[in-house]
Amino acid sequence: MIIPLLILTPLVLLAALGAVWKARPVHAALLLALSLALVAVLYLTIGADFIGLVQFMVYVGAVAILIVFSLLITRPGDEAEEIQRRPRSMVTGLICTLPVLAVLLIALVKGNPESAPAVDAPPLSIAHLGELLFTTHAPAVLAVGVLLTAVMIGAALFARDTEKPKSNQPEK
């Protein structure tokens, strides 16, 4: 069980590092997609099949593609400028990020997950998951439905061309 994880973990981290480091925005977005896909594979490996597939469909299929399309629509920034001012922003970024990482790792070491008893949880049962979703968590499912509807309407309103509001009104 640990061997596939040992292979996948560095790959996920490398792809994420590329997404953070690459100056060209499209490369960064595609590496993010790769990283998210590898996390989906990781979920499939440890037995959370349904979550892995949802991750693949929603993150890789929707979010990453949405980001790539936004990059295509907007004008790419100046790469040379980005690379030129990178040393300064990287130093500032690392000064802020390393303490966070240190706190997380200290908490991890203090929590001592090595001492956790090795339990072999049964694989995720989709029937059980669906039953819980539509009984215990039914209000939350409905709330997410309302949220997604609101998001769809909101995104459509935002994306509407506001500069020429009269162009799509019918002539009288």
Binding site: L13, V20, S89, T92, G93, L94, T97, V100
Partner: peptide
């Protein structure tokens, strides 16, 4: 590590 990388991306 993934969280820290994300934070680094947001900040830089």
């Amino acid at each position: 590590l993934l969280f820290s990388l994300g934070l680094l991306a947001v900040l830089t």
